[in-house]
Simulated scan of single mutants.
Amino acid sequence: MILLGTLVNAIAIIAGALLGRLLSGIPESIRKTVMQGIGLAIVLLGIKMSLETQNFLLVILSIVIGSILGELIGIESGLNKLGQWLESKMGGRSQGSIATGFVTTTLVYCIGAMAVLGAMDSGLRNNHEILYTKAMLDGFSAIIFSSTLGIGVLFSAVPVFLYQGAIALLSTQIYNFVSQETLDAMLVEVTAVGGLMIIAIGINILELKKINVANMLPALVIAAIGVPIVRWLAVWFG
């Protein structure tokens, strides 16, 4: 079953979020310190990911072009509106903002090497080990996020399932379009661009500055497309 790993991942997030609600009585000072620690860890993870790039110029171009496209499309605004709609259906804010919890954790769980690589491994080899590992990590982090950001974390399981599921299904056809070498290079640059977004998410959690991370999401696609284009240009003009 190609989508088994993705399904397990989504269920782990839901279970973690529900368990985190039981810890909602944690004092505000503790919640704040925990979130600061998570923010710092996320920044460190993003730095590690972004340093993997083999083409720094491509990373910059991907972020610039992707951000422009994201702003024009209004991805951040759309996610926030969806979160606010969920808030209205849940009867307002119980603890934290549902929109904030939903958007923050959706980005954290969807942007990253494990989400892409795990989903592709499920599609290409029907191997779910990476996503099982990601499910464990996401489940534990969902407990912390839910206890601090609220029940909005639970709803991030839906976009995670759709995102990883789409990658898993599309990856079954990927070798019809690119070679293994090109695919490996694409994953490196997508991971690097995703790393910059992870850093931005950490900055948001630390409340240092509000960055519209969701509007940068098209940069992942630009980075993936950019690798074969750069290789083609190198052949013709190199």
Rank of each mutant, 00 (worst) to 15 (best):
residue 15 A to L: 14
residue 28 E to H: 07
residue 33 T to R: 08
residue 37 G to E: 12
residue 37 G to N: 10
residue 38 I to P: 00
residue 44 L to E: 06
residue 44 L to A: 15
residue 45 L to G: 06
residue 46 G to L: 08
residue 46 G to I: 05
residue 47 I to K: 01
residue 48 K to S: 03
residue 55 N to P: 01
residue 59 V to H: 02
residue 66 G to K: 04
residue 69 L to E: 09
residue 77 S to G: 13
residue 77 S to E: 07
residue 78 G to M: 11
residue 78 G to D: 12
residue 84 Q to R: 01
residue 95 Q to V: 09
residue 104 T to E: 14
residue 105 T to F: 11
residue 108 V to W: 00
residue 112 G to Y: 13
residue 115 A to I: 07
residue 128 H to E: 12
residue 128 H to V: 13
residue 135 A to W: 02
residue 136 M to A: 15
residue 140 F to L: 08
residue 141 S to C: 05
residue 147 S to D: 08
residue 148 T to V: 14
residue 150 G to P: 09
residue 153 V to H: 04
residue 154 L to Y: 08
residue 156 S to Y: 05
residue 158 V to C: 07
residue 159 P to G: 11
residue 159 P to W: 05
residue 160 V to F: 06
residue 163 Y to A: 06
residue 164 Q to T: 00
residue 165 G to S: 08
residue 165 G to E: 10
residue 167 I to H: 07
residue 173 Q to M: 13
residue 175 Y to Q: 09
residue 175 Y to P: 01
residue 177 F to G: 10
residue 180 Q to S: 11
residue 181 E to L: 05
residue 185 A to P: 04
residue 187 L to F: 13
residue 189 E to I: 09
residue 199 I to N: 02
residue 203 I to Q: 03
residue 209 K to L: 11
residue 211 I to Y: 12
residue 216 M to L: 15
residue 217 L to D: 03
residue 219 A to P: 10
residue 221 V to M: 07
residue 221 V to L: 10
residue 221 V to H: 00
residue 224 A to W: 03
residue 235 V to G: 07
